[in-house]
């Protein structure tokens, strides 16, 4: 469904030194340099696959996604999506894909989502009856109802994201590009969006490429992940293989009753941060229960929280240590 072969994208970036002189030089003798946002990326995604796309901020995820949906022309390499060349943006191609961006919205701010949906239905040439049927079907899957008749500006972020998904899926695309669809949502809303996506994929057999900063999104949805770092694809394979090597630690946050010093935590794990009474430790998964028990026994703990470290930090620490998968 998606074929990418030695895809590269180079941007020209103008450098500017700060201050007036810098501005002057920038205006008259602009120095540009090439930045390779994506280099030599190749992968294939089969119909119906759900693939997670990971990488730190600026790694090239969004650039790749935009090349896949035809918003950016590649500098080199080949892309085929659903048998089309995305950059031509033919109507037949556009009717098969959709792009959802967590930080941008297409719904009309002052009107209920149903109004935006009626515009989309017209643009995609979906008849009124058919549109109503599809809206009902998707609304049921997304568990939204009367929110569709309330102005978008009065919806919560979670409700808005569901409505965005509905608007993006009304034309029944067979390829979904999701760029951080759960950004900023609370845990419940994230979980609901996730289960919807899984459900949608199961029912329609759509192909999904998903980027997210929340590891939980990826673990819940994708058995295969692509990891991109500084524009290069460095992992393409099962999630398990990546998770084990990426995240052998869990993050333990403590709030203590009295201040502590770094030496106090020798032997518990890797001390990430210590700010008076707030402590962040990286503890290996296998020792987690033992370490937590010891922490509770040896310190006056007010609060304790165990998390997966954010993907960005995981990937960051991975590269700092120079262990490339």
């Amino acid at each position: 469904m998606i074929e990418v072969e030695q895809l590269s994208k180079t941007y020209q970036v103008a450098d500017k030194t700060p201050g007036f002189v810098g501005t002057f030089n920038h205006f008259f003798r602009r120095k540009t340099r090439d930045v390779q946002a994506v280099r030599d990326v190749s992968f294939t995604i089969e119909r119906g696959e759900m693939v997670g796309f990971l990488g730190a901020n600026g790694a090239g995820k969004t650039t790749t996604l935009k090349m896949l949906c035809g918003l950016i022309h590649p500098s080199a390499g080949k892309v085929h999506v659903a048998g089309y060349l995305p950059q031509r943006r033919q109507a037949a191609f556009l009717k098969q894909i959709t792009l959802v961006m967590g930080q941008k919205q297409q719904l009309i701010w002052d009107l209920p989502p149903l109004d935006s949906l009626s515009v989309n239905a017209a643009v995609y040439g979906i008849g009124e009856k058919e549109a109503r049927y599809r809206i009902n079907e998707l609304a049921e899957m997304l568990e939204i109802g009367e929110e569709l008749t309330r102005p978008v500006r009065k919806l919560s972020l979670g409700q808005r994201m569901k409505a965005e998904l509905l608007a993006a899926l009304l034309h029944r695309p067979s390829v979904l590009f999701l760029d951080e669809p759960t950004l900023g949502l609370d845990v419940n809303a994230q979980a609901r969006v996730r289960s919807f996506l899984a459900d949608y994929n199961r029912r329609t057999g759509a192909t999904v490429l998903l980027t997210s900063h929340y590891m939980a999104d990826i673990t819940a949805l994708c058995s295969r992940v692509l990891l991109i770092h500084q524009g290069e694809l460095i992992h393409d394979g099962a999630l398990d293989a990546l998770a084990a090597s990426l995240s052998p630690f869990r993050q333990v946050r403590l709030e203590l009753n009295s201040s502590a010093s770094p030496e106090d935590f020798v032997g518990y794990g890797e001390l990430e941060a210590l700010d008076d009474r707030a402590v962040r430790l990286l503890v290996s998964r296998s020792e987690l229960t033992v370490v937590v028990a010891r922490l509770l026994a040896n310190f006056d703990v007010l609060d304790l929280e165990v998390n997966d470290p954010p993907i960005d930090e995981l990937i960051g620490s991975l590269f700092r240590k120079g262990r490339v998968v």
């Binding site: 949906c69 035809g70 556009l94 792009l99 961006m101 941008k104 989309n120 643009v123 995609y124 040439g125």
Partner: peptide
């Protein structure tokens, strides 16, 4: 950046 949405519509 919402021009992206316009460009992805089949119109």
């Amino acid at each position: 950046g919402t021009l992206d949405f316009v460009l992805l519509k089949p119109i």
